[in-house]
Amino acid sequence: MENENNNKKIEAYTGPGWVLTTLEMFMNWGRQRSPWPLPYGTACCGIEMMAALAAGYDMARFGAERPSFSPRQADVLIEAGTITKKMEPILKRIYEQMAEPKWVISMGACACSGGVFRTYSTVQGIDTIIPVDVYIPGCPPRPEALLQALIMILNKIGKDHPYYRFKSELEGNL
């Protein structure tokens, strides 16, 4: 029993120290308040995404003021709409061109799983191509649902460890 307690104390000292955890907190605080979206609207869900970016349900309140169409400058890829087999390599390329750290929101039934369209030409869910962080069901989802998904991504950023993503000591401390 005492041995375990001693081990726990030693683990606490060998984990990430005060400077790096405060720095991580600082970075997460900054990243949480300015997610720049890449509005990848291909179909009807794009209209609801535009509604979320417009004056009715303002997405710029969360700092997403600058929807950039260049993947190098965007953080969050909001994929809204049906993806056909022709569009598949393009979506993969855009995702790979984005700079780390990046997150993906899959908006609407067609993006999450093919939706109604179980055909040869529609990709049955974009998570067969790119890793997805948040799924939003709906056809189309309300703009508030998109804002909820964005808030979920922001909370996920808040728990992120930019420095210790791969260090195994952190798994011991979690």
């Binding site: 600082f26 900054g30 300015s34 710029a60 700092g63």
Partner: peptide, 20 residues
């Protein structure tokens, strides 16, 4: 409204953008 999460009336928004 514009940015209003980062500090009162979003006044710390440029700082957050810079950090990001």
């Amino acid at each position: 409204p514009g940015p209003n999460r980062a500090g009162l009336f979003g006044i710390l928004q440029p700082v957050c953008d810079g950090i990001k």
